[in-house]
């Protein structure tokens, strides 16, 4: 709503502006409707072209992939890459592993992040240090902690299990979840919670029954983001899992690098198979995602 309004007012400002000064034209060139459309097209191409190229590659004969760099297949369209991709590598198992890890770790992240953030904001838990520390762990490169993490996971005998990876992903995605949920909770008027206390809710009930329903779009948007992060995660998956049993999709896809060289066609088919679930998820939740990411919360 807000977005639309500001766009309209910009538009009408251009129409209403009678003095066609240089500043006006400059503004129009950079921020006017044609400029926005061109920008949008550039962005869309940047995102769609690689995916389209992968899709086309997955439909080319293996020999053609090696000999021609053309975007569209020249010879016949074939499904051989798709069949081989699933036959040569346990792709479905990898996808299933990834789904379990991403879903469970996201649920855990949300269960921990919502009360943590609420407590930090409303009860000043941990003073200034705790929130700063959380943000600090977020900006730290994960490779720095890869060895200690490996040691810890091994200590609790969870190496090469989905559970181990779930725990590590939960930990890794907590900071960003806290950081995202922060703004949603801040947008809720404090009085709403105080009204609930006076009306008879405990602090925990207030969080669960008043705050959470109000920040639901934001929590869902955060969930989608951590789900994608977990789905894409490579480093921890690489060092913590080493078998079909627990390898996730990003690790599994490297299996197409075989003795006979890179299987580009199969790899493209597999990559596409891994992208599709995420696209469906984002498509289904796009309304919530946009609402959650733009609106930030509720006005009282």
């Amino acid at each position: 709503m807000l977005e639309a309004k500001s766009t309209n007012s910009l538009e009408s400002a251009f129409e209403a502006n009678e003095k066609k000064t240089l500043a006006f034209y400059l503004k129009w060139v950079f921020f006017g409707r044609p400029a926005r459309i061109i920008l949008l097209i550039i962005f869309l191409l940047a995102i769609i072209l690689p995916i389209f190229y992968i899709a086309m590659t997955s439909l080319k004969e293996p020999i053609e992939i090696r000999t021609s760099g053309a975007l569209l297949p020249r010879g016949e369209i074939t499904t051989v890459n798709w069949v081989k991709a699933f036959a040569n590598v346990p792709l479905l198992r990898y996808l299933l592993n990834s789904t379990v890890v991403a879903l469970v770790s996201t649920i855990l992240v949300l269960i921990v992040a919502v009360p943590t953030t609420y407590s930090i904001i409303r009860f000043n838990t941990g003073g200034w240090f705790f929130p700063a520390w959380i943000l600090g762990t977020y900006v730290m490169p994960p490779i720095v902690v890869s060895i200690p993490i490996f040691a810890m996971v091994k200590m609790v005998q969870l190496q090469n299990t989905l559970a181990g990876l779930i725990l590590v992903h939960t930990m890794a995605n907590l900071p960003i979840a806290v950081w995202l949920i922060d703004s949603y909770i801040r947008a809720i008027p404090k009085e709403l919670e105080q009204a609930a206390w006076i009306d008879g809710y405990s602090k925990f009930e207030t969080l669960a029954r008043v705050v959470v329903p109000l920040i639901r779009p934001g929590v869902l948007a955060t969930g989608v983001i951590t789900l994608i992060l977990s789905w894409n995660e490579f480093l921890f998956a690489l060092i913590l899992t080493y078998g079909v049993k627990s390898n996730t999709f990003p690790i599994g896809i490297s299996r197409y690098i075989g003795e006979h060289g890179l299987q580009f066609g199969e790899m493209s088919a597999a990559a596409l198979a891994g992208i599709v679930p995420i696209y469906i998820l984002v498509f289904l939740s796009s309304r919530n995602l946009v609402e959650g990411l733009t609106r930030g919360g509720v006005k009282g």
Partner: peptide, 8 residues
């Protein structure tokens, strides 16, 4: 409350 704090 001043802003009425109704559950929206």
């Amino acid at each position: 409350f001043e802003n009425w704090a109704l559950y929206p």
